[in-house]
């Protein structure tokens, strides 16, 4: 179920966001942060790897302008959901790696729960509205 929702989110909101930021913000505030948290809790990554990973899983739905990740990453650093440490890139270069903190994990769980609830509601309405 979760992965289904994630795919859906990617295909709707994130794509929209990447194409037209203002619209996205009105739709799902916090969605991008959720994606980043989810991806980084799988494995701490540096900016380029994160962008690549997002691009890969979202297939072609996500026309990513890689730079746009950075303000979001900074916001999350400031809130304390992420932290940075030095690590190695795939090419063994020293790079700054983003890592999810305890607070970040907690936040992700809460967000996922509330999104699930929301989708359950929406699905219910969409399926039952015309019956």
């Amino acid at each position: 179920m979760k992965s289904l929702i994630l795919t859906y989110l990617f295909k709707t909101t994130i794509v929209a966001h990447m194409k037209k930021k203002a619209q996205y913000r009105g739709l799902f505030p916090g969605a991008l942060e959720m994606m980043i948290l989810k991806t980084l809790s799988w494995k701490p990554m540096h900016g380029y790897a994160l962008a690549q990973r997002l691009k890969d899983i979202s297939e072609d739905y996500l026309q990513i302008e890689e730079g746009s990740l950075y303000p979001a990453l900074q916001r999350m650093l400031k809130t304390g959901w992420l932290e940075t440490e030095m690590g190695l890139s795939a090419r063994n270069r020293p790079v700054r790696v983003f890592k999810v903190t305890e607070a970040g994990k907690k936040h992700l769980e809460q967000e996922l729960a509330s999104v699930e609830k929301m989708f359950a509601g929406i699905t219910r309405v969409l399926t039952l509205a015309e019956q």
Binding site: H46, G47, E66, S89
Partner: peptide, 27 residues
């Protein structure tokens, strides 16, 4: 605290972006 550590932050942002582009160029 942030008021005083900001310059370090700014440098880190520039660094991260530089690393990002370097990686990308290499790949």
């Amino acid at each position: 605290k942030q008021l005083f550590t900001r310059h370090r932050r700014y440098n880190e942002i520039s660094e991260s972006i530089r690393e990002h582009i370097d990686e990308k160029v290499t790949s």
